[in-house]
Design a protein around this nucleic acid. Structure first.
Lengths: 194, 194
DNA sequence: ATTATTATGTACCAATTAGTACAAAAAGAA
DNA sequence: TTCTTTTTGTACTAATTGGTACATAATAAT
């Protein structure tokens, strides 16, 4: 063991980078800006992230999604009524502060913001969204088996329906943050979970 | 009337610009690339579009939406069953070629791709989507009045529901173009139009 | 034909981009 | 202390960005 010690924790600086990428977008977030927010210099950065900005972004996507999934799975694990939890999860979108309404979904943004040149990164985002979809699907399948969900549609279809709802709301509310009818739209959309 | 004649038609070159912006995204589409596709030089461009790239983009959004709205209104005007037409309109999303599935909605993309610095342009995109929403809402209101639609939900909510569906599908299908269940998800989503 | 007007093409520019080179710093090991 | 290893900060760079300046070209009016 030798060498000068790192002055930063990788998970922490990646978390800072999430902030910047989320509010500014992948292209618009400049390397300087990211480094500033992360609190490290170029020397350290390009040593730790040999792939540069792109590697940082991919790691930020993975780290964000990982945290998100773990949180959701945890909440589900301690819930008496997982279907209701998913409903609440969606309804909570209507209560987000305006600032959050404007930012969209961190993963979904990647899907829309990346150009064809970043097809590989896009694929990562697709996988990560697919992971959330899988969680939804599992909850639905189980609820159907336990007769807690009357809707007999294929769990995979309902899972995709929910992810689609998620993606939609995260785009729609950007155009009109805090708009009156979001709650009613969500209620209407969630009637399939009966 | 005097002066050297223009060698291009504004609507035509803006249409070319739509192509570039759509496939590459606002930031990623470079001025050179746009000019190349439009087939005009910098001199002509910056004379005709004093606001540069941004003005071109805003005009492209307006022109695209204008064409889109007119087409939709026309189709509705000659339709015997406007609600069915809207259903078909959405179901057609599942038949798009992969290349189109990957591109998303031209207007919705703006909402997600623009950074906070372009809030004014974002607002334009929001208005344009609102215009489509208004068309949906009108169709629904009329159908309810004519008892052709049983669903008694507020037309405004159903209109927002449909735009939300539109936005969702245009994000979701990017992650998995041509995926199996899109058709079923759409059918499930359109059950509200009964 | 001369003039006024508008459009065009090209050369140029300042700013910013992501990324590199490298010498100095900070630790442990000998 | 001296050597080795790793990290850090800074100076630099090559490419690209959107945009401007301006001389020239092409037309209509006089």
């Amino acid at each position: 063991m030798a060498g000068r010690p790192k002055i930063f924790d990788e998970r922490e600086v990646v978390e800072k980078a999430v902030d910047v990428f989320w509010t500014k977008g992948y292209e618009t977030a400049s390397a300087d800006e990211l480094l500033e927010a992360m609190g490290i210099g170029k020397g350290s950065f390009y040593l730790a992230f040999k792939g540069g900005k792109k590697e940082l972004y991919e790691k930020s996507l993975r780290q964000y999604a990982d945290r998100f999934d773990k949180q959701l799975l945890h909440d589900l694990s301690i819930s008496k009524d997982p279907i209701q939890l998913i409903k609440d999860f969606f309804m909570a979108l209507a209560d987000d502060p305006k600032s959050k309404q404007m930012k969209g979904c961190y993963i979904g943004n990647a899907l829309v913001q990346l150009s064809d040149g970043d097809a590989d990164t896009k694929l990562i985002a697709a996988e990560l969204l697919g992971s959330v979809e899988g969680i939804f699907t599992d909850v639905i399948r189980k609820a159907q088996q336990e007769k807690r969900l009357k809707n007999k549609a294929k769990p995979e279809v309902l899972g995709k329906y929910l992810i689609n709802l998620w993606n939609g709301v995260n785009v729609t509310r950007r155009s009109n943050p805090g708009y009156e009818n979001l709650r009613e739209v969500l209620e209407m959309s969630l009637q399939v979970l009966h």
